[in-house]
Amino acid sequence: MDNLFLKYMRERTGRKKTAQGPSFESPGPVITISREYGCPGRRIARQLAETLTAKNRAQGNNRDWRWISKEIIEESARELKLSPGMMEDLSEYRERGFFENLALFFSDEYYPGDVKIKNTIAKFIFNASTEGNVVIVGRAAEAITKNFTNSLHIKIQAPLSWRAERVAEMQGMTIQEARKEAMEMDHRRAMFRNYFEKERPDIDYFDIFFNCATLSDEEIIESIVILAESRGFVV
């Protein structure tokens, strides 16, 4: 599987591209969900996986759909021998205080390079995607699997004011604090994605965008299911 991953990454970054880019045949379908901070990506992914599983079973296919989010960090951290918390901090460019960094410097903790962190995460996403029947939340999965033939890429968005209200409510912040948190998280996530996306526009990677300020979870999920069925993801 690792050799297949390396071959795929060379095709994505490499030579002899056609006008539409290389095509990569995946053994099974993958749906990726990217979201702006404060939008319900995980909740929608869970409900989407449950809905697709139910539709499979109704047609006599007992293969379940699964969704993954935190597992990406947990498995990548295990491979790099880091704690999940540190892995998330490093991948999201979270800042540490002077004394915290000093303590880590004299500890047994090991900082792998930025490229190694991102490629470890990418390898996990690639391997999960080749298994098929998976909904993946975040971590630039849309870029890592963009050239899979059986893929669908979703982005969930909402105005900053709407997101700030939800973040303030969930985390007990003021609206001003929540706005700042949302903007900082969007920026850190963009830094991670740009390693894979090379600052190309979103339209190069996503098939459809949803505004969760004007659409309910159910409406978003129903729309994704219709697309998944039209592409033969449910059989």
Rank of each mutant, 00 (worst) to 15 (best):
P22S: 09
P22M: 09
S23N: 11
E25A: 13
E25P: 10
P27Y: 07
G28L: 07
P29V: 06
P29A: 07
I31D: 02
I33M: 00
I33C: 01
Y37C: 13
G38R: 10
P40N: 12
G41R: 06
G41Y: 08
G41W: 09
R42D: 07
R43S: 15
R43L: 15
I44L: 14
I44S: 06
A45E: 09
A45P: 15
A45Y: 07
R46E: 14
R46C: 09
L52T: 02
T53A: 03
A54V: 00
N56F: 00
N56D: 03
A58E: 12
Q59T: 03
G60H: 01
G60W: 01
N61E: 02
N61I: 05
N61V: 06
R63P: 03
D64G: 06
D64P: 15
R66V: 09
W67T: 04
I68E: 04
K70V: 12
K70G: 11
E71T: 03
I72H: 05
E74G: 06
E74H: 13
E75T: 07
R78C: 08
R78L: 06
R78D: 08
S83H: 09
S83A: 14
G85T: 05
M86H: 01
M87F: 10
S91I: 00
E92Q: 02
Y93A: 00
R94A: 01
G97K: 05
L102A: 13
A103Y: 12
F105I: 06
F106V: 13
S107F: 14
D108C: 01
D108V: 07
E109L: 05
E109H: 10
Y110V: 15
Y111R: 15
P112G: 14
P112Q: 10
P112N: 13
D114E: 15
V115D: 09
K118R: 15
K118C: 11
N119A: 09
N119W: 11
N119V: 11
I125W: 00
I125K: 08
I125P: 03
N127F: 00
S129C: 08
T130F: 07
V134N: 02
I136N: 04
V137L: 12
A140K: 08
A140V: 01
A140I: 06
T145C: 04
K146D: 05
N150E: 10
N150Y: 04
S151D: 01
S151C: 05
H153K: 04
I154R: 01
K155R: 14
Q157F: 05
P159G: 14
P159R: 13
P159V: 12
